[in-house]
Amino acid sequence: MAKESNQAISRKPESAMKHILSFVLMIAFTAASFFLVMSDAVPSGWVIPLLLIFAVVQVFLQLFTFMHLDQKGSAYYTIFIIFGIFVAVISAVGILLM
């Protein structure tokens, strides 16, 4: 087991640039979200849809750069991420519908 996990860690080296780039992007999206809410730059009906779009983009950035969903890993990642999405969906549906 110990050996296997070492191999899993030493897949191909990743560039630091990619991480920094997506980190900067995520901060930018967060700042933009705050700006949207605080300023009157966009009509108020647009605020929530835009926020949702920003959020989804951030989720993908997070999943692919920091959680390595783009690499072929073990099934564990997938299991845990699917279960996480499942819990999130149940909770959101529960709160919104009830």
């Binding site: 087991m1 110990a2 996990s5 899993a8 564990y76 845990f80």
Partner: peptide, 13 residues
């Protein structure tokens, strides 16, 4: 602990 139990088991465990 999740990572420990997935990754650190002895051979045969």
């Amino acid at each position: 602990f999740i990572v420990t139990i997935i990754n650190m088991r002895a051979p045969g465990m």
